[in-house]
Design a protein around this nucleic acid. Structure first.
Lengths: 135, 135
DNA sequence: GATTTTTATACGCGAATCGCGTACTATGGA
DNA sequence: TCCATAGTACGCGATTCGCGTATAAAAATC
């Protein structure tokens, strides 16, 4: 069982622990225990969560990587806050959930400051300093 | 959890209860309890059986009908610097190439500062203290 | 047919742990 | 400041899990 996945699934729906627990019909502390690793869900709880999060028990238990039964790149645009299908990485190491949240906040702040670049456009200008790290 | 499925899976391999229990590394009476319904498997046991019988936990738990239905196993790790083929977005608007470069620089700077502020929060695996300075 | 081996089922008990209530801290808004 | 919400952690009662063991049926061996 992979702890981060539950948290990620819950946050992708913008649910609090209390909300999620209510939807599952269990106590908040119980569900919180699942996410923190203090408690492990029963078989029923696993199934309920798979239903609620619209994924599979195999994904929650860590047997498969893909939460959905569809290709990861079906969509061309991946919303960062909702990026369950892929792991993003920088310099080879995967971004943690917290880092992703920082990035989102960073982007928002940057846009807030009036740095409004064209949004739908892609200027494919390769930058040189990005490739300084070689594997 | 659907009782008959375990028995069918076991017999399709022509295994006895003892054989199956040995393969799973549990007591015969324990596994027999799963089939008879007297006992319910733990999360580990469910995963072990899914592996052994080459099916999914969802099938054993009765969430899907097809025992051979496995989700796509495409490991999707996107290196941000190389993700020209997919669009990332925040709040619905696509990140420009320049923004992505800023994000990469942001992440690198953040990691450079040493991310020891968080402890035991996200542990990918069992050891949470081991990977603070790996490569 | 009798004896031994294998298979399947069920019971009882000690140990493990599940789920809940509760308390605590941190954060943000009125 | 006060209050509400979010997240975390602890203790306890009750559930039940996993094992050994016993029993019965079936199969195999002689």
């Amino acid at each position: 069982m992979i702890l981060n996945r539950l948290t990620k699934l819950r946050k992708s729906n913008n649910w609090s622990l209390q909300e999620t627990a209510d939807l599952l019909g269990i106590a908040k502390s119980t569900y919180a225990g699942y996410e923190s690793g203090h408690r492990r869900p029963s078989l029923e709880a696993i199934k309920l969560m798979a239903d609620l999060f619209q994924t599979s028990t195999d994904y929650i238990l860590g047997r498969v990587e893909d939460p959905k039964f569809q290709p990861a790149f079906e969509k061309t645009a991946i919303e960062l806050a909702d990026c369950l299908f892929v792991d993003l990485s920088v310099d080879g190491s995967t971004l943690s959930q917290e880092e992703i949240e920082y990035v989102i906040a960073f982007i928002r702040a940057k846009r807030e400051l009036g740095q409004r670049k064209e949004q739908g456009k892609n200027s494919v200008g390769e930058s040189s300093y990005l490739n300084e790290k070689t594997n």
